[in-house]
Structure formats: C-alpha cells, structure tokens
C-alpha cells in the first residue's frame, strides 16, 4: 500500500473540514466557560434543539434556499434565547455554589432535553432530504456541507475575535473572564454581560445546528455523537481558550481522519484519546497555556 497518494491528501482535506465542524461546536462552549466559568454539558443538546427547529421549518415550508436561510436566522435567534434561558433558569441561581453543582445541573438539563425531544418528536431519525452538490477538485471529492461548516467556523472564530478585541462589549467580556470579583467592584453589571455571553454561545450553537443539519440526521440522541468529543477538544485546548480549542479541533480531526485511513476508525480514536491523556499530563492547562 503506498504511503502517500491522492487518498491521503483527500483524507487530510476531509480531516480539516471535519475539524471545522468540531471547532464550531467547541467555540460556543469555550466562550461560555471562559466568561462565566461554567461548563454547559448540555451544549450539544442545544444544538439538537436548533436542528429540530430547522427540520420542522423546512418540513412545513419546503426546502428552498430562502426558507433554509430564514429558518437559520430564526433558529440561531431561538437557540440564543434558549442559551439565555439556560443561564437565567439554571446557571444563575447556582452561580456561586461549587462548580460540581453547575455540572450536575447542566447534566440534568442534558437528560431533560433528550427525553423532551423523544417525547415531542419520537425516536425517529429525520433529515432535510437535501441533495447538496458534490465538489470534485483535482480528483478529490469534497463535501459541500462540510466546506460550508468550515467556512462558518473560520468566520465565527474571526467574528468572535473581533468582537472580543475591537469592541467595548468585547473588552468588558474579556475583563470579566479575567477577574469576576474585581469587575463587580468596579461597578460593571456582570449579570447583563453573562446574559449577552449566554446569548452569543446559544447563537453559535444555533449556527452549528444549521451546518450539522445539512450533513447529519437529527434525532434526540445526536448529542451523544458530538457532546463528548466537543468537550474533549475544549479541555485539550484549555477550557475557555478559544484559539486553543480551535487548534485542538483540527488536531483531533486529523487523528481521526489519517489514523482512520492507515489503521481503522476505532484505532484512530484510541490514538486520539491516548494523545489527549498524554497532553493532560504534559499540559494540563491546555495546549496554549504557558
């Protein structure tokens, strides 16, 4: 078997595109952890909520591009609202208690959302039934949906970067991420900032929902597929470190893609997890922490 061939290149390209999907998922989770210091274990379930919104919108109104675009805007807005609700109803009352409480509470939310979705929509697998164009580039095939997700991840990352570094709001968010207590003493309304952050995090989940629903079936347990690996990527990159998470997503996806090509998908995951464990010993604070 040749070591280098077009298939390896194809695997690398597909790995990068998968990395884009994972990076997008990690972005919102990381933002929320960085600012509010809370891990939303149920983050992937919010994405699932968004996917159902888009599914039902296209189901009822058809799968034309205007509908899809409109549904996406609505889904992003509604998942942003869900993010705010999660904060107001679940996180805010227990914000000052030990972190384990927040973990357990969002863990409870995870099961609630899974069961609620099963109750509402049944256990069936549903999808938009869209047939996206197939891209053929230099003899390599590239998934259009993945390309979109990749572009959205890069744009989301850049957008967030500019928001955090070039705006007054962003400066305030970064400041609060650095020191929660001092910001209160300086008269900053932390509650408002938490709400805004939760809304942005939710909005990013909505965006991820849109891109995932182009390539995956939606079902109540889709979170099982993405939740654990998203969390792992955030930890690998350093919880709260958005650039770290972004890079970690691509490292993990290359492990899966290239490892899968040369060995098997199962072995690839073993390799990715071994790498993760080793890194936890070498850099427990995450890839980019000094």
């Amino acid at each position: 078997m040749p070591v280098f061939d077009i298939f390896l290149l194809e695997a690398i390209v597909n790995g990068i595109l998968l990395g884009g999907v994972l990076a997008l998922l990690a972005l919102g989770l990381n933002l929320i952890f960085g600012v509010i210091d809370v891990v939303w274990i149920a983050y992937a379930e919010l994405v699932m909520g968004g996917m159902y919104l888009i599914y039902w919108a296209t189901r009822l109104l058809g799968t034309s591009w205007p509908v899809l675009l409109g549904a996406s805007v609505v889904a992003i807005a509604l998942v942003a609202v869900m993010g705010v609700l999660v904060h107001v109803l679940i996180i805010s009352p227990i914000l000052d208690t030990p972190p384990i409480n927040q973990l357990l509470a969002t863990g409870g939310l995870l099961f609630f959302l899974q069961s609620f979705a099963t109750l509402l929509f049944g256990a069936d697998f549903r999808n938009l039934g869209l047939h996206l164009p197939i891209l053929n580039f230099l003899g390599m095939y590239i998934s259009f949906a993945r390309l979109l997700a990749f572009a959205a991840a890069v744009l989301g990352m850049l957008g967030l970067y500019f928001l955090l570094t070039r705006t007054y709001l962003g400066t305030a968010i970064r400041a609060i991420a650095q020191d929660r207590e001092v910001m209160v003493l300086m008269g900053v309304n932390t509650k408002k900032l938490y709400l805004i952050t939760s809304a942005i995090g939710g909005g990013l989940a909505g965006l991820a929902a849109l891109l995932l629903s182009l390539q995956y079936d939606v079902h109540p347990f889709i979170g099982l597929t993405f939740g654990p690996i998203t969390f792992m990527i955030c930890v690998l990159g350093g919880l709260g470190n958005m650039l770290g998470g972004f890079i970690a997503a691509f490292i993990m996806s290359q492990f899966i893609s290239i490892g899968g090509l040369y060995y098997s998908i199962e072995v690839a995951y073993v390799m990715a997890f071994v790498f993760f464990i080793v890194m936890m010993f070498l850099r427990p604070e995450g890839l980019l922490r000094r």
Binding site: A11, G15, S257
Partner: peptide, 13 residues
C-alpha cells in the same frame, strides 16, 4: 473494518 455506531465521521473509511 468495524466502527462505532455513534462515530461522527466515516470519511476515512
């Protein structure tokens, strides 16, 4: 080759 039924990606396969 085997893979986990919840794998998020099968492109390498």
């Amino acid at each position: 080759e085997g893979y986990s039924a919840t794998a998020p990606d099968l492109s390498s396969l």
